[in-house]
């Protein structure tokens, strides 16, 4: 299946990417993205940094417009996954 991944702001700087369509296996979760998918195109080190940032709530993950805090969130074909730097206020 294909999912659309977008890195925003400081996360894009870390990932050195902005947008990418990724071919993934079915049953891909947010966790699999960090551990299996990202290392192959971002490099292991960057993937680990991003994962650590997710754990520390430095990164906000949004799947199809929904805030996601669970590793186990299942992704589906055509999903749009965004990685934002933590921000607040308004």
């Amino acid at each position: 299946m294909r999912i659309h991944v977008e890195f925003v702001g400081m996360v894009a700087e870390k990932a050195k990417r902005k947008c990418v369509w990724l071919e993934t296996e079915v049953n891909t979760t947010v966790e699999t993205l960090f551990f299996k998918v990202f290392p192959s195109f971002l490099g292991k080190e960057v993937a680990e940094t991003l994962f650590k940032s997710f754990l520390n709530r430095e990164i906000i993950v949004v799947v199809n417009g929904t805030l996601t805090t669970e590793f186990t969130t299942m992704l589906n074909d055509g999903d749009k996954v965004y990685f934002f730097p933590m921000a607040s206020g308004g």
Binding site: G9, V62, Y82, G90
Partner: peptide, 22 residues
């Protein structure tokens, strides 16, 4: 986690985020 982002962009950092979140 929000400290540096706030320093660099303030609430400008949430415009696209909150748009994405609806």
């Amino acid at each position: 986690p929000a400290f540096e982002n706030f320093r660099s962009l303030g609430t400008n950092g949430i415009v696209y985020l909150f748009y994405t979140l609806g």
